[in-house]
Each structure stands twice: as structure tokens, then as C-alpha cells.
Design a protein around this nucleic acid. Structure first.
Length: 320
DNA sequence: AACTCGGGGGA
DNA sequence: TCCCCAGAGTT
């Protein structure tokens, strides 16, 4: 069909002219692309860029990464969030290097076996590094084609993403360069087909977009209702010794912020509530210190962002 | 299928 | 205040 041909060709032509100069695009090696994909999960380019540059300078090769301690990797990840990504990255690096000479995965299915690499990342890496004709579906792609094809699915659910991927197979089969086609869909969602106020006047898909034709851009993608956040009660206590070391507690087995160091928790007496992404935090006043606290140099251990902010405010840590 | 996991930025 | 972001792992 002519329309399918137009989508791939229009996307790739637009991408060639409009793509942002991301560092891993200059020389797309497996290590660089893998690292960039993990960091970019649920994270914007502006947030990732300084971390990516610093991380690659600190761990220039997969061998250097594999030789690192988890605490050092978490320190490099400090502030970026979703710390399981860093732990899985290190776990995978150790596995790559332990098998002797590093052999990178040779297909999307092989990439999907790597810890921290799911359906999206496996498809992205296989298309960019290997030229595999495997479509990616991320938040950008879901939004773009929910509008183009006026799809009413909830694309936060996996089955909806799988159905869209199946439909996109026909499109990527017409692409000149599969990796560019995939990146073009995502770049279009990030730069043109944005969540609010899409720039349809400059969109290469406007001519084939149902939402643009009907003026229903705001109605797609459909969003389901949101649930009430759980409440966690935590209190921050700041204790420092003469050497400038701070009393901190490391999360050892809890899922939240595992491996990072925080200020010790204490007993309650409510003051104010703060809302985070996945829970409400009720800050309370000090009564008594609990937990296995140790004096640590806060510059040497990975801290949560909340802890870092408190220590900077208290003059115990310089801003980075 | 639902839940958990960070933090920043935009409107 | 709520939504969004190159999602994945666990239950």
C-alpha cells in the first residue's frame, strides 16, 4: 500500500534532518547504546546526558564496569532514580565479562535475556546495532500512533503495546534503515507529537494522521484513572561528627532505594506531608534514632536525593 | 494483570 | 497538583 510506504519514508526523511545529536549516535557501539538505553528508560534526554557522560568517563568499557563495586556504580547513578537499572547493568556486565571474551547478543531475543533489558530495549538495541526489523513501542510511539490511527487502547498495558508492535511490523518492513525508523518514531514523539500542544504544522505524518484530520489530538492516547498513593512515614535526623562524617543508614533489603544511604529513621509526631511519585511521605519530628546507623563520608557513598538535599541545606555537603 | 520502582519538568 | 518520561522485574 502506498500509505505504509509514506509513513516509513516520511519518518526517516524527517529524522535525518531533525534528529538531536546524542553522543551515542556519533559512534553507536554496543556498550554505549546499551548504557544509553538503560539510562533513558522512563527518563528524559536532558536528565540523562550529564549522567551518561560522567558514567562513561568513570567506566569507559564493559570490562571496567564489570570490575566495579556496586556502591561505586550506584554512586555514579545517584540522583537518576530507578536504581535497579544500575544494579542490573552491573550484573549483566559481570556476566558478559565472566564468559571470557565479550560476545554481544546477536538478536532481539538474545538481548532480551540480559538483566534489565525488556521487550522495548531488546528491540531498540537489535534494530540499531544489528539492523533487525523489529519495531519498538515506548511511550512516544504509543502516543504518535494512537493519534495517527486513532487507537483507544491503554498503552500502559503490555497487551496493547504488543498489538501496536504487530501493526508496526508492516511499517518497519518498508524502512530503509530499521534503527533509524525506530528512533524516528520516538524522536517525533519527543519533539513534535508531544503530550500537550503537538506541532502538527511541522509533522511529517500530518497528512496520514486521523487525529490531526479530525482535530482530536487531545483525545489520544486515552488515559485511565489514577489510584491513591500509599503513605510512608519517615523522619530525617542529622548527626555529624567532628570529621564531617554523617550518621547514615544503608537500605540493605528493602525494594525502595536499595543500596543507597539515608538519614536514620526515628519515631513519630507529625509535621508535614510531601508527595513523591509512588508514595506520600509524612515528615515527623525527632524522638529517638532507629536502625543500623554508621558514620560515613557522604561524598563517598550513594545518597538518596532527599538525603543529599538535607545535607546540602545543613552545610554538611557541597552541591555537585 | 496489578504492583513497585525515582526524580525532574511541563502545564 | 497531576501527568509524562527510549520500561522492567516481581508478585
Amino acid at each position: 500500500m502506498k500509505r505504509r510506504r509514506e509513513i516509513a519514508a516520511a519518518l526517516e526523511a524527517w529524522f535525518a534532518a531533525a534528529k538531536r545529536p546524542m553522543p551515542w549516535r556519533a559512534r553507536p557501539t554496543p556498550y554505549a547504546c546499551w548504557l544509553s538505553e538503560i539510562m533513558m528508560q522512563q527518563t528524559t534526554y536532558a536528565s540523562v546526558l550529564p549522567y551518561y557522560t560522567r558514567f562513561l568517563r568513570r567506566f569507559p568499557t564493559v570490562e571496567a564496569l564489570a570490575a566495579a563495586d556496586e556502591g561505586d556504580v550506584l554512586k555514579a547513578w545517584e540522583g537518576l532514580g530507578y536504581y535497579a537499572r544500575a544494579r542490573n547493568l552491573l550484573k549483566a556486565a559481570k556476566a558478559f565479562v565472566a564468559s571470557g571474551r565479550v560476545v554481544w547478543p546477536d538478536s532481539a531475543a538474545a538481548w532480551a535475556q540480559v538483566p534489565g533489558v525488556g521487550p522495548y530495549t531488546a528491540a531498540a538495541l537489535a534494530s540499531v546495532l544489528l539492523g533487525a526489523r523489529v519495531p519498538v513501542v515506548d511511550g512516544n510511539v504509543a502516543r504518535v500512533f494512537a493519534r495517527v490511527w486513532e487507537l483507544g487502547d491503554d498503552f500502559r498495558k503490555l497487551p496493547a503495546r504488543q498489538r501496536l508492535a504487530a501493526r508496526l511490523q508492516d511499517e518497519i518492513d518498508r524502512a530503509a534503515v530499521p534503527g533509524d525508523f525506530n528512533q524516528a518514531m520516538m524522536e517525533l514523539g519527543a519533539l513534535v507529537c508531544t503530550p500537550t500542544g503537538p506541532s502538527c504544522a511541522t509533522c511529517p505524518l500530518a497528512a496520514v494522521c486521523g487525529a490531526a484530520r479530525h482535530g482530536t489530538q487531545a483525545a489520544f492516547p486515552v488515559k485511565a484513572g489514577r489510584k491513591e498513593l500509599p503513605v510512608r512515614q519517615i523522619t530525617a535526623v542529622v548527626v555529624a561528627d567532628a570529621a564531617g562524617r554523617v550518621l547514615l543508614v544503608q537500605n540493605r533489603d528493602g525494594g525502595l532505594l536499595k543500596g543507597l544511604w539515608e538519614l536514620p529513621a526515628v519515631a513519630p509526631a507529625a509535621e508535614r506531608t510531601q508527595v513523591f511519585s509512588h508514595f506520600k511521605l509524612e515528615l515527623r519530628t525527632v524522638r529517638a534514632v532507629r536502625g543500623d546507623a554508621e558514620f560515613r563520608n557522604p561524598r563517598e557513598v550513594p545518597l538518596t536525593t532527599a538525603t543529599r538535599k538535607v545535607l546540602v541545606q545543613e552545610g554538611l555537603l557541597e552541591e555537585s
